[in-house]
Nucleic acid binder design. Structure first.
Lengths: 129, 129
DNA sequence: TACGATGTTCGACGAACTACGAAGTTGGTT
DNA sequence: AACCAACTTCGTAGTTCGTCGAACATCGTA
């Protein structure tokens, strides 16, 4: 008999004060993970399998682990699904303005020669970086 | 006889519009390189060998190459010295506020339980990250 | 000319990273 | 119970990364 209601080892998240900047920057420097973070910024939470990225489930699982251990996201289990959410409040507290600035930079980075069209897909439509 | 005054291959730098955010984030995610960038923020330029980092010359050279190719720094040759400088203007244009925010975050990241001492070395004194 | 100082380039090596498939776990459904 | 769906963990292949030492290039100087 299990000794508690949670069967899984319980997901490890760093405390807010323990979030390391270099870990965060490294986590964000991967295209797949950047896509995940961008999608997560426009939604409160989302199940792992529903992200517009094109990698195998096991690979995706790895990326979520990196994001979680860097402190960028939280993961919550519900039934056999795992929902991820950005730690916006914690991140804002730890590194004020960082997330906004980086994501704005990424958005601009992808506004090629079409800045006048005003067609910002905003995390929708464009998978990967 | 050399066909021009520059004997070396001439250093390659990405154009401002070509600076890639993920490359920048990756470049900044290394402790040694972050130290270099921090030092460079408080000075207009500096010779390679004068940075407070503890790695072999060849390793340092590698890090400078990564920083240069990511678009974070420029390098200028003078005699047998190579001076590096942050591309603050270009970076501000490409990714407004990014450098300031990241460096502020890093400074905060290292203000442990001593924020009241006012002893912020500010790129001086603490080698590495 | 010879030497020393400053940096770079060239392998090399181990560690870390990204990726995948196979197998396992958990929970809902038939 | 059998099955499917959603993920994770494990093992592994291939690549990239950070590091170093050895050798090389350039410039100023003894």
């Amino acid at each position: 008999m299990p000794r508690s209601t949670r069967r899984r080892p319980a997901l490890a998240h760093p405390a807010t004060e323990e979030i390391d900047l270099l870990d965060v920057l490294h986590a964000l420097s991967d295209p797949t993970r950047m896509t995940i973070v961008r999608v997560l910024r426009s939604e409160p939470e989302r199940a792992c399998g529903t992200f517009p990225v094109d990698v195998a489930p096991s690979t995706l699982s790895h990326h979520f682990k990196v994001l979680r251990e860097s402190g960028l996201i939280t993961q919550r289990e519900e039934a056999n699904r795992r929902f991820s959410a950005l730690r916006t409040v914690d991140l804002e507290r730890r590194f004020p303005g960082l997330l906004d600035t980086v994501l704005a930079a990424h958005a601009q980075s992808h506004a090629h020669a079409q800045s006048h069209t005003g067609a910002d897909p905003g995390a929708e439509g464009d998978a990967q970086a």
